[in-house]
Design a protein around this nucleic acid. Structure first.
Lengths: 199, 199
DNA sequence: GAGGGATGTTAATGCTCACTAACAGGAGTG
DNA sequence: CACTCCTGTTAGTGAGCATTAACATCCCTC
């Protein structure tokens, strides 16, 4: 009646539009604060139309989170293997993560906040991917300071993620590039400071 | 029938028990993932008994978040005014925040995550308190490096909060004191690194 | 020992919301 | 044209859950 439902191009462009809207809305209102109808409206359809593309709301969140986690993990691996030694690898990881968090603040927000709303199965999957990404960082750090216990390095990496992921909440009036510089500087200082007093 | 509802001591101890359970459960399952009945059960009553102590679920969340924010802000102010110069003030702020986040990880988690579920009114209140706390840090930093724009300092402070607040997610096998040392070291390195290239 | 306030209990009530049913129309294919 | 996907639409349906009603008990004070 309203808009004609024109046939879709080979790529599920409606699908990706839904995923985008989901990320944006989940970031703004939280998973439980967004209804199926909200999501439908955001992509120009009604709520139930979503079920033509996804089995349900949980699956939607699952796909968003698994996808982010995969992208981060894949990118991390690529950056490390492509780098020329651990010093460079670390800088590449920092720059890559910062770029991601400035580019996709919604995904970062949802990733941090909605783990609790996943299916057990999806949560396991996301956790595994996260672990892989963290271990990528830990391996690089460990090459730089072999004397530090892995547990310390792991905690340091999580701490730096917290620092870098603060972006969605705090960029304020700073330009993207100013924020990027600031985070790079702070992040690498934090990681460099992590060595225990003695040796 | 079951347990006798003995008269309560002058302090609303049931009240504080409820607030404690709320913080714990909200941290574990998210605000929307916790029902009134869950909360009642957690303090040894049934759900509706809560309404004898709080007007509703939203008010409960509001009280938890306003309370944390007030405690942080008050403590921040006290530490700064009691300190001997900005260098010491900064260290006191760092130590204070770290202690808080290690002591009350649930409150930190909820504070970070559930802002979105507050009443507009409560959200405003919490935001104001947060702003006050941030400005406390910014003022100290600004005394240390008067040439840095406030906006940069503000972003730096948020970033360091992200770093320090990573604790609930990442402590792992580290002891409290090891984690505390690590965070202090990383946090102050990050803040010290924040100065822009030139001057 | 009667009255009242504080605190609980169980049983509604009513709303929100994910999901399903039933039906419709366009696009490609023979 | 007839058939079949594919993707929509509107109108249920049923569960979950915050909140309220109605009623019970204990403690305190007079």
């Amino acid at each position: 009646m309203a808009t004609a439902p024109q046939g879709q191009r080979p790529t599920g462009e409606r699908r990706t539009a839904i995923l985008g809207a989901a990320a944006r809305l989940f970031a703004a209102h939280g998973y439980r604060g967004v209804t199926i109808d909200d999501l439908g409206r955001a992509v120009g359809t009604t709520g139930p139309a979503l079920y033509r593309h996804f089995p349900g709301k949980e699956a939607l969140l699952g796909e968003v989170l698994v996808d982010v986690s995969e992208r981060l993990a894949r990118r991390g691996r690529a950056l490390v293997t492509g780098a020329d030694g651990p010093e460079q690898a670390l800088e590449a990881l920092l720059r890559g993560h910062i770029e991601f968090s400035l580019e996709e603040p919604d995904l970062i927000t949802v990733h941090d906040r909605e783990l609790v709303n996943l299916t057990d199965d999806d949560r396991r999957r996301v956790r595994r991917l996260q672990r892989g990404y963290v271990e990528e960082w830990v391996a690089v750090l460990s090459a730089l300071r072999p004397e530090s216990p892995r547990a310390d390095l792991r905690a340091s990496v999580h701490a730096v993620f917290g620092l870098l992921n603060s972006t969605p909440h705090s960029r304020g009036p700073l330009s993207r590039s100013a924020m990027s510089t600031l985070l790079l500087r702070m992040g690498s200082a934090a990681l460099r400071a992590e060595a225990p007093p003695q040796g």
